[in-house]
Design a protein around this nucleic acid. Sequence first.
DNA 1: ACACGCACTGTGCGGGCTAACAGAAAAAGA
DNA 2: TCTTTTTCTGTTAGCCCGCACAGTGCGTGT
Lengths: 359, 359
Amino acid sequence: MWEVHSSDKIRIKDIAQRSGVSVGTVDRVLHNRPNVSAKARDKVEAVLKEINYQPNIYASALAYNKKYTFCCLLPDHDRNAYWTQVEEGLRQCILNRNDFHLSLTTEYYNQFDRQSFIRTARSLLEKKPDGMVVVPQETDVTQDFCRTLQGLHIPFVFLDSSVQDIQPLAFFGQDSLKSGHFAGRIFMMQAGKEVNRIMLMKLMSNGRVASRQQENREVGFRQYMTGHYPDCEVAELILQIGEEKEYARQIRTFLEKHPDVRHCITFSSQAHILGEYFQENHLQDFHLFGYDMIERNVECLKRGSIDFLIAQHPWKQGYNSVKSLFNHIVLKKEVQQYHYMPLELLTAENYIYYTTDEK
Amino acid sequence: MWEVHSSDKIRIKDIAQRSGVSVGTVDRVLHNRPNVSAKARDKVEAVLKEINYQPNIYASALAYNKKYTFCCLLPDHDRNAYWTQVEEGLRQCILNRNDFHLSLTTEYYNQFDRQSFIRTARSLLEKKPDGMVVVPQETDVTQDFCRTLQGLHIPFVFLDSSVQDIQPLAFFGQDSLKSGHFAGRIFMMQAGKEVNRIMLMKLMSNGRVASRQQENREVGFRQYMTGHYPDCEVAELILQIGEEKEYARQIRTFLEKHPDVRHCITFSSQAHILGEYFQENHLQDFHLFGYDMIERNVECLKRGSIDFLIAQHPWKQGYNSVKSLFNHIVLKKEVQQYHYMPLELLTAENYIYYTTDEK
DNA sequence: ACACGCACTGTGCGGGCTAACAGAAAAAGA
DNA sequence: TCTTTTTCTGTTAGCCCGCACAGTGCGTGT
């Protein structure tokens, strides 16, 4: 038998009493405000050292009665299911904190246009944000902007990916190298040792995949493959973003060229392109590995045309990014800096238990 | 570009003004307290219908200034790592809510003794709890106790497992049938089609495994096996709880009797018994599947003697159980009733990202 | 001696809410 | 009709904290 209690609450009033000063003076000491004599400060600090004072953050927020403005800088996406989930998380976190005066403004930059990032970032600064959520674009422009934020003492958190030499308040994302490695392990376990050619499907635009995360997953995957299956060929099927009409033909051509291939993997969130193709063409014995719990992928999981997905928890990334800002800025709590999302493997059996916890 | 705001706060004072009564009357209407004339009630309710009033729960809790007592009824365990994690979650949830006057008392019952459950449960009632966390024991005694709680209007949540015909405030646990099914899928994918005998290790006491959860996982697993691998024999290795000295000898005997077995599974949290045996005896080509992220299992994962674990998130179960009680009782929020823990597959590559979120 | 500035300290209001209390209105009784 | 009782309503103190404002005491200058 054991008991826990919320430590019997010590109030400012108690500290004042025990140190023989008034609450006003205690308040000044606590907030490092001027106009406190050395003698008074010593007395109060002596008491503070003895006890472990934890201010009532809710009463504090109530009295402080300040409005907070958060801003979020996201890559542009036309209702891409993945980023929509991120936004939903951001939104929900604000709404769940209804009793604080929070507002969040989100603006979008073009992923492939450096100027667009700079422009949008600057425009958000005009809102005089108290904190920011940033999805990094290219290294240098992101670094520049973050240094500006640091100069203005505006805390910021990185979402999705990070950028070197910059210390954000917090980071939320996945370790994409490890993710690719993990994918390789599971994928090849299913394929078996005797398989010597697999398909890697890539969605590209101007010879580039849509995100750094995808690039890194592939690096991790290929490291695993050369380490464990050096004789297995990775045959690439490259589809152009936006040219949906061509996909079916290109897949058919690929499969005709490589009639032995039965195992496919993609590091994009669009495994469903292949999954749906397999369904439409009644190809039963193909195995498919992809990323992200978006609706079309889930449908394929259910129907058996996708075997595995790795979840990235976009909702959680959004929710927790804002939560970190809130905890740091409003509640003045300490926040953990690095938060790697779990590498969660989803199948037809377990995907229904993939949840977002806080509603 | 879009914006979210915490909806511009409407206060009791505003409602009072708009309905031409005082805050006292509004308060009485909101809390369904007596001594309100029909006329006044109508006016206030009309205003409430128009606007969407969301009281400031923190100001409310502050003013209400009440102490809350929660009680928790757990199975006895001598520092069993799994239940310790549950307790750690319970504790952390209380501590994180330091600004409310919460206390939690935990008592233990003997898993194999019905009277012990009844006795301990009754003893907790003397604390006059405002809410309870219950880990069910046998169906009828659990049902009896829960009916008593319902009679006293004490909300309760089930942790770990549930009990039929009883509607708890909330339930936190894993779908153990599905879990066994999922385990079977992954386990046999690794084993491959040609394997025709596997080992199932069971820890028993008086012919029973330690929990209903373990029984059900086995049922799910066997369903999967008869459905997909009817020709694969499941050979059981049964170890007696407490007789650690015998384990090595019994394992050796089993392996001598079944020299072809290379794939082992257990539904207990003690896969490490086999893992450590393999390590000590330098048996490299064995594959092992188990449950729970306890320290000794993690060590085996790292060293490669365990391939897979399914996590049950005991910390989260504990944390969220108390959180549900708190949200319902203190904040008067609605809470979701069924919370199934994710069926998370852990390997050497991804276990470090298994987290508990809220510190 | 007094006025004045300065450093410091205590008091009190307000943030949104609850609950106790006092006071007004309505209903009941004589 | 006037009291008494009951029902209803408004006001206010208090939950804990932050901050503005009004003091208090002390030293300096004239």
